[in-house]
Write a protein that binds this DNA or RNA. Structure first.
Length: 400
DNA sequence: TCTGGGGTCCTAGGACCC
DNA sequence: TCTGGGGTCCTAGGACCC
């Protein structure tokens, strides 16, 4: 099998857009950020500046660091143009974030050229048309393509041929495995495992014993470059949220209620703009000692209504009123999950769920009316009796 | 490293149902 | 009356990624 999966990743994205638009920033140690570093130029990185670092700490390491405020509209616009080029390259594009995506070029055939040639043309088009550097990794699996793009940064192209996979992979540190962060890396280091090769040499059993079943199997498979996940286009996001850091000063409860209203308004607006509705409301809290927790509530029906989300989230906030006053809240966040298309028809079909014949008849009636692909996951309504069937008139997602 | 804002996936216990 | 086994949903928390 040939290496046909591309992982394309814009280099130091926000910082590169700023350097593109403001020539005086080119070649300089600069970063984009408000409060913390969101992206740093390679010149700044080489002097120790990292993403998520507080700006003050970044200045200590890199005196003279130039920082600019983020311009999200400019980044969205640049991203949109790059994704247009992705779409011109192949229909199989799976976005991962604003600045990276997987592309499967396996179905394009010989006429278009080898994956390496396709990747090379893609890089050139992004450079010429959008003015940005993009690194591309090419491999047989998504995981390896992603590792490759990272290894070849900045402004690189790396093809990992099928017969060279493990030689490439095994010397790398365990942190390169997708899903291995600081906590997992520490646990593995305690057992003397620090490279991907050592993970591969260890059996699945010991890894499961150290990390639990899910993670253990996952990283064992990746270390052998077993990653069957296909590139999937048309994915839609599973949740949508917003949060606000509250700074040091303590807030009155009415202050918090006002902030909550802003969050609810922003999130439900975005939800409606995306033609989605949601059922689960989660409030996220962070306290003065940096502990974090969440409280959530699932509504009976999916909705896009600001009032419904406000009602549910306000209830969750009020329930912790005294505790919030005691512990000083430093962040409030709101997430809406359990999303479905806004035009999904939520139907409650009356039916006695002891009778499967009756269930079949009810579902057949729905299929006759809306088509056989129209039925989402049906939910039994236990106590009330009946069945809730989300009908999806457009089951194929249209991006986010 | 005294800490932003946007997400994903996994696990585990309890409620509830057959 | 007690018990087993299988399954889904909800809630909360943790780790990770960009």
């Amino acid at each position: 099998m040939q290496a046909t999966i591309l992982h394309a990743d814009l280099d130091s994205f926000y910082a590169s857009v700023e350097q593109r638009d403001r020539p005086e920033l080119r070649g300089r140690a600069m970063a984009v950020g408000g409060g913390v570093i969101l992206a740093a130029s390679y010149e700044a990185r080489s002097r120790g500046v990292r993403t998520a670092m507080p700006i003050r700490a970044a200045r200590e390491r890199c005196p003279g660091l130039i920082t600019v405020d983020p311009r999200m509209e400019a980044y969205s616009e640049a991203s949109r143009r790059v994704f247009e080029i992705f779409g011109d390259t192949t229909p199989l594009v799976e976005p991962i974030s604003i600045d990276e995506a997987f592309l499967d070029v396996g179905g394009l055939g010989r006429l278009v050229g080898s994956p390496e040639l396709i990747a090379s043309r893609l890089r050139e088009r992004v450079a010429v048309d959008v003015g940005l550097a993009i690194s591309v990794g090419v491999a047989r699996t998504k995981f390896l393509a992603k590792v490759a793009s990272r290894v070849c940064k900045p402004d690189g192209l790396l093809v990992v041929e099928p017969d060279g996979e493990l030689e490439f992979l095994h010397p790398l540190p365990v942190e390169r495995l997708w899903g291995v962060g600081p906590v997992t890396a520490d646990k593995l280091a305690e057992k003397g495992i620090t490279t991907v090769g050592e993970v591969a040499a260890s059996g699945e059993g010991p890894l499961v014993a150290i990390l639990g079943r899910g993670s253990g199997r996952h990283i064992h498979a990746l270390a052998h470059n077993r990653d069957p996940r296909p590139v999937v286009s048309g994915k839609r996001r599973a949740s949508i949220g917003s949060q606000r850091a509250l700074g040091r000063r303590s807030r009155t409860f009415p202050d918090l209620e006002a902030i909550l209203l802003e969050l609810v308004d922003r999130v439900s607006r975005r939800l409606r703009n995306g033609h989605r509705v949601g059922r689960t409301v989660t409030l996220r809290f962070r306290f003065g000692d940096f502990t974090r927790d969440t409280r959530s509530r699932t509504l009976g029906e999916a909705t896009g209504s600001t009032a419904a989300f406000l009602d549910a989230s306000h209830g969750l906030l009020v329930a912790r009123r005294d505790e919030i006053a005691r512990r000083r809240l430093t962040l409030l966040g709101l997430t809406i999950a359990n999303l479905s298309p806004a035009d999904a028809v939520q139907q409650s079909l009356p039916f006695d769920h002891r009778s499967s014949a009756e269930l079949d008849r009810a579902l057949d009636a729905v299929r006759d009316r809306y088509g056989s692909s129209s039925i989402g996951r049906a939910t039994l309504l236990g106590r009330e009796g009946g069945l809730r069937v989300p009908l999806l008139p457009d089951p194929v997602g249209r991006g986010t």
